[in-house]
Simulated scan of single mutants.
Amino acid sequence: MAKIDKRFQILFSEEEILLLKNEADKRGISQGELLRLALRNEVTHKSDFLKIKAIRSLTEVLD
C-alpha cells in the first residue's frame, strides 16, 4: 500500500480508498490533492455559518 494510502487508511475503508485512488488517477492528481479540493469546495460553497460549523466538525474529527 502506498504511503498516502496508509495515512488515509484510518479514515476510509479499503473500498473508499480504492474509489479515491481511481478517481484521482482519472483526474491525473494525487489522492491528497483530490481530498483537499473536495474539502475546499465543501467549505467555500457554504454560508459563513455553515463554514464555521464545518470547520468545528473537522477539528473534532482531527482531535
Rank of each mutant, 00 (worst) to 15 (best):
D25I: 10
I29S: 03
L50V: 09
V61G: 01
S30C: 07
Q31R: 14
E14R: 09
Q9I: 09
S57Q: 07
L39Y: 04
L11P: 00
S30W: 04
R7E: 09
E23N: 08
L18C: 02
S47I: 09
E14A: 15
K21A: 12
R56H: 05
T59M: 11
E42R: 12
E42S: 10
K53A: 09
F49I: 12
E60D: 11
Q9T: 08
T59P: 00
V43D: 00
L34C: 04
G32T: 14
L50Q: 14
E42Y: 14
R40W: 02
E60G: 06
I29W: 02
D48K: 08
F49L: 11
G32P: 01
E16K: 14
A2E: 13
A24Q: 05
V43N: 02
E60K: 09
D5R: 15
E14K: 15
L58V: 06
L58I: 13
K53R: 10
Q9M: 08
F12W: 06
S47H: 04
K26V: 06
L20C: 12
L35E: 01
A24M: 02
L34R: 02
I29A: 06
L50D: 14
N22E: 14
K3S: 10
I4L: 05
F12S: 07
F8V: 05
H45P: 00
K46L: 14
L18Y: 01
S30H: 03
S47R: 04
A54T: 15
F8M: 12
V61F: 14
D5K: 11
Q31V: 13
K51S: 05
R27Q: 14
V43Q: 03
D63F: 03
K53G: 00
D5P: 00
N41H: 13
H45T: 12
T44C: 03
I55W: 00
E60I: 04
L20A: 07
V43Y: 06
F12H: 07
F8W: 14
D5Q: 13
R27Y: 06
S57E: 12
L58H: 00
A24Y: 06
D5I: 10
E16H: 10
V61P: 00
L18M: 08
R40F: 08
K26E: 12
D63Y: 04
